[in-house]
Computed example of a mutant assay.
Amino acid sequence: MHALAFSAALLYTALTASAKPAPGLRARQSITALSTAQIDTFTPYTWYASAGYCAPAATLAWDCGSDCEANADFEPVASGGDGDTTQYWFVGYDPSLDSVIVSHQGTDVDDILPLITDADIVMTTLDSTLFPGLSSDIEVHSGFADAQTQAATDVLSAVQTTMSKYSASKVTIVGHSLGAAISLLDAVYLPLHISDATFTFVGYGLPRVGNQAFADYVDAQSTSVTHINNEEDPVPILPGMFLGFVHPSGEVHIEDSGEWAACPGQDNPSTECIVGDVPELWDGDESDHDGPYNGVEMGC
């Protein structure tokens, strides 16, 4: 990001990023370190999130260099997006994990920071056609909602096709940055239309997507949610809590030491977690946004 643009982002977000968590959040539990074996279980999903940056022709052929080679037995079913009005996405089946995989393209930090500080930061309710039955109290970042809407029905159809073709009952949704935000919305959307599956979300560098009601809804569902933050990445502290945005539970924070800390609760304020480690936007380091996440740097 150019210095002037980044300075403008700092001025706009400084107060919003440093607000204290709202009272009444669930009681904090102990922060625990993940073992090497636990960390390694995320690696296939990290590569899938990175592959989300690859063009549809490459992911449909599963010919995208190291991102594809890392999960060589993946069976692609559908890919789409143009990388402009619609983020790239792909859907397929991983026989080793026995799971349908859904991945959405992210964006680099120069693009994600303006998106989460411009006019699209206004919250909106979710489209009742895509998200039937949800309370009108649930509101999300309008820019993220628009991005998810672009491919929602195509992704749903591809997931249903993949489940049928491979007799699969597990769906894992991954993404980095903007792709993580889209994927978290998918993790709310897909279970509303598919009742015979278990769902998992694994996101990297996830910005805050919605309000308290949204975070509480995500926490109340059976979907397994993990959002992994790397060191001093500033994106996960945005948009600010002052604006009413709240992360769901499931944070894992990669500390400078390399230790992965599981941070229970919503926006855990401990210095071992992202809110405490990066209390202000200027405490962050943009270079941490793309990783590495256990040795994997995001991007095709």
Score class of each variant (00 low, 15 high):
5 A>S: 04
7 S>V: 12
8 A>G: 11
10 L>I: 12
13 T>F: 03
16 T>Q: 15
19 A>W: 02
20 K>D: 03
24 G>R: 06
26 R>F: 03
27 A>S: 13
33 A>T: 15
36 T>Y: 07
39 I>H: 00
40 D>Y: 09
41 T>S: 11
42 F>K: 07
45 Y>W: 06
46 T>N: 03
47 W>P: 02
49 A>Y: 07
50 S>R: 13
52 G>E: 08
54 C>Y: 07
54 C>M: 12
55 A>W: 01
56 P>Y: 10
56 P>V: 07
58 A>R: 14
59 T>S: 14
63 D>S: 13
64 C>V: 13
65 G>I: 03
66 S>I: 00
68 C>D: 05
70 A>F: 09
71 N>R: 06
72 A>T: 05
72 A>I: 07
73 D>G: 10
78 A>L: 15
78 A>H: 14
80 G>P: 02
80 G>Y: 06
85 T>P: 00
89 W>M: 07
89 W>E: 04
89 W>V: 05
90 F>S: 07
91 V>G: 04
92 G>Q: 13
96 S>N: 15
97 L>Y: 00
99 S>L: 05
99 S>R: 00
102 V>R: 06
110 D>M: 00
113 L>C: 05
114 P>K: 08
117 T>N: 13
118 D>E: 13
129 T>A: 14
130 L>P: 01
131 F>R: 00
131 F>C: 00
136 S>Y: 08
136 S>E: 12
136 S>M: 05
137 D>M: 05
139 E>R: 15
142 S>I: 06
144 F>C: 08
144 F>S: 13
145 A>Y: 01
147 A>F: 01
149 T>V: 07
150 Q>R: 11
153 T>L: 13
162 T>D: 14
164 S>E: 15
164 S>H: 07
165 K>G: 11
171 V>M: 11
173 I>R: 04
173 I>L: 04
174 V>L: 11
178 L>R: 03
178 L>S: 01
179 G>N: 04
181 A>S: 14
190 L>H: 06
190 L>G: 08
194 I>C: 06
194 I>D: 08
196 D>C: 02
199 F>I: 06
199 F>K: 00
204 Y>V: 01
205 G>Q: 02
207 P>R: 05
210 G>Q: 08
210 G>R: 04
211 N>F: 04
212 Q>D: 09
214 F>Q: 07
218 V>N: 01
218 V>Q: 08
225 V>A: 04
226 T>V: 12
231 E>G: 00
231 E>R: 15
232 E>F: 13
234 P>Q: 01
235 V>G: 06
237 I>C: 02
238 L>E: 00
239 P>Q: 09
240 G>E: 10
242 F>Y: 13
243 L>Q: 10
244 G>C: 11
246 V>I: 13
248 P>A: 02
248 P>I: 02
249 S>P: 01
250 G>H: 06
250 G>V: 03
251 E>W: 10
254 I>Q: 07
256 D>Q: 14
256 D>E: 13
257 S>N: 10
259 E>P: 04
261 A>Y: 01
262 A>I: 09
263 C>E: 09
266 Q>P: 02
269 P>H: 03
269 P>A: 03
275 V>C: 04
278 V>C: 09
280 E>G: 02
282 W>D: 13
286 E>L: 15
287 S>K: 14
288 D>N: 14
293 Y>W: 03
294 N>A: 12
